[in-house]
């Protein structure tokens, strides 16, 4: 959102991208967005044994305005959905979302009137993390994968290019129902 977005494509931009990505991934502040069972595992990840502090992420921000990662930990009900979107909107850019657990990712076993069938109906999701609930190790793995993604994220004209490519790929992608192969 600043000067770095205005840089011309080329060596300078990729260098800045790398530096910015490194800085962003090394100091990520998750917002506390615990909803259900997964929230307990998220707290466990922050506590002694799994120790999220090793990745510089132990400080969970109570206010979304100081956070850049939202870990949607648990089932999102229809009543919670507008709240979740508002919290997401309050987070400053750049921001990322991990959908933790099957309930947040797809509704999971709660295929019913009360639960939003996948938090990607409300906010864009970067990492889907399966499990009911996922083990703390799985959350750590998801966070490390997100770190890689953040490290490789683009800026300025490169970001626009990447967004365009992603959209084209998504439009061309085969719908699940038309895929062949093992049933999963």
């Amino acid at each position: 959102m600043g000067l770095e977005e205005k840089l011309p494509s080329g060596f300078l931009l990729t260098t800045v991208e790398q530096a910015a990505g490194w800085v962003r991934k090394s100091s990520m502040f998750p917002a506390t967005f615990g909803l259900a069972c997964c929230a307990i595992e998220m707290m466990t990840t922050g506590a002694g044994r799994y120790d999220l502090a090793r990745f510089g992420m132990e400080v969970f921000r109570g206010s979304p305005r100081q956070a850049d990662l939202m870990i949607v930990a648990g089932r999102v009900s229809q009543k919670m959905a507008p709240v979740l979107r508002q919290v997401y909107d309050q987070m400053p850019n750049p921001k990322w979302v991990i959908s933790m657990g099957v309930c947040a990712s797809s509704g999971g076993m709660f295929n019913n009137y009360a639960i939003v069938q996948g938090v990607d109906h409300i906010v864009p999701v970067d990492i889907y993390l399966p499990g009911c609930p996922p083990r703390p190790e799985m959350l750590l793995d998801a966070i490390l994968k997100l770190h890689q993604k953040v490290q490789g994220s683009k800026l300025g004209v490169n970001a626009e290019e990447a967004a365009r490519e992603a959209e084209e790929a998504a439009l061309k992608a085969l719908p699940t129902i038309e895929m062949k192969g093992l049933l999963r």
Binding site: S106, G107, N111, N112, Y113, A114, Q117, P175, T176, I177, E178, M179, K180, G181, L182, L183, R184
Partner: peptide
């Protein structure tokens, strides 16, 4: 009142709501 579930899609198959 219906349960309100949606069909779940897999590769090449669709499973109806419970």
């Amino acid at each position: 009142y219906p349960l309100g579930g949606i069909p779940v899609e897999y590769k090449g198959a669709r499973i109806p709501a419970p």
